[in-house]
């Protein structure tokens, strides 16, 4: 391979593993340009006949389908060292609108399904995740710059977390609801019910474990979700969509909108048909969280604020407790006459 072309010396991630036949690469890959498109950023060509790359087109997940952004925009996703990984769709406010419509449409069926059924479906998601552990570990490793074992540990923790939340589906009502003693001839029963459509800003730093930790508690109780995954590292989330699409979760129950968190979140926070807002990924400074909370006040959305001083340092591997489950439930109390 004496005619081997000059190389950009950029390798890395999932994109740069293979090369093209030398002549083709030489024609297409000027060494000076930054790694931008699939044709650039190759490693050296070592053998004359290698496979052509099959690059994955990451797409949004809305209503059980995988559309491109309505705006046609994409943005570059890089690994922790700045090497190009893929182009992710950059959702617009109209994508947010469509996602909320899809989530609203799915709410009746999902919240009306039995808790047992929802638990089974979420458990099946965990089964499917288990089968794709390696893919997720590779994506998490690339996205967060973790060494292999640490990334695998994150994925394992996320799957375990998912199973743990799935188990809560038919138990949370007993824990959070109950029969109330009242001074009168009534049965007085309180039962927690799902809030509705929940907009979730997934954590920015923990692209997969953090995502699972905020998404599972929202949907297991019967809410439907519009999720804005980590802006810098959306690929594990977009791959999670493929798992959700093939694991009995009805279309629209989870909708994923990768893009600029600030842009999409503003639309979701102001949307009159969104019932609750999880600000886990609203950023460290608290300024965006405040803006979104103000917008959310218009129709009295339930807002789950990020923990005080949570900034960078949320430990997503810690025991989560039931607080995230309870944050998106509303208690319904019924009075039923005794003995009439």
């Amino acid at each position: 391979m004496s005619d081997e072309p000059k190389k950009t010396a950029k390798s890395g991630g999932t994109a740069g593993k293979t090369g093209r036949p030398a002549g083709k690469t030489a024609a297409k890959s000027p060494a000076k340009s930054p790694a931008k498109s699939p044709a650039k950023g190759r490693t050296s060509v070592r053998t004359p006949a290698r496979r052509i790359d099959v690059l994955k087109t990451y797409k949004l997940f809305v209503g059980g389908k995988f559309p491109r952004s309505e705006s046609g925009r994409v943005y570059e996703v890089t690994d922790s060292e700045g090497n190009w990984l893929a182009n992710a769709p950059q959702a617009s406010r109209k994508d947010a609108r469509d996602a909320v419509t899809a989530a609203r449409k799915a709410f009746g069926g999902w919240s009306g399904a039995t808790a047992y059924n929802r638990g089974q479906i979420l458990y099946r998601v965990a089964e499917m995740l288990e089968g794709r552990r390696e893919q997720f570990a590779a994506e998490v490793a690339a996205a967060e710059g973790l060494p292999g074992p640490a990334a695998t540990a994150q994925v394992d923790a996320a799957i375990d977390r998912w199973v743990w939340y799935a188990g809560w589906s038919d138990k949370i009502v007993q824990v959070a609801g109950g029969a109330n003693p009242v001074a009168g001839p009534f049965f007085n029963l309180s039962t927690p019910e799902p809030t509705g459509v929940v907009a979730v800003l997934a954590p920015q730093e923990s692209s997969f474990l953090g995502l699972a930790s905020v998404l599972a508690p929202v949907i297991v109780t019967g809410n439907t979700a519009v999720v804005v995954p980590s802006e810098k590292a959306p690929l594990p989330a977009l791959s999670l969509a493929e798992v959700l699409a093939t694991s009995d979760v009805p279309g629209g129950v989870v909708n994923l909108l990768s893009g600029r968190t600030r842009e999409v979140a503003a639309t979701l926070a102001a949307h009159q048909d969104v019932n609750a807002l999880d600000l886990a990924g609203a950023g460290a400074d608290g300024e965006l969280a405040k803006e979104l909370e103000t917008a959310a006040a218009e129709n009295l959305k339930r807002v789950l604020r990020p923990d005080e001083g949570a900034a960078e340092g949320v430990d997503w591997s810690a025991d989560p407790g039931t607080s995230r489950l309870l944050a998106f439930l509303e208690t319904k109390t019924v009075w039923h006459p005794i003995g009439v």
């Binding site: 909320v100 102001a270 949307h271 009159q272 048909d273 969104v274």
Partner: peptide, 14 residues
Amino acid sequence: RQKLKTGRYSGPDY
């Protein structure tokens, strides 16, 4: 119409 007026997406509740 409400969206144009307020800048916020409306919903079937309204």
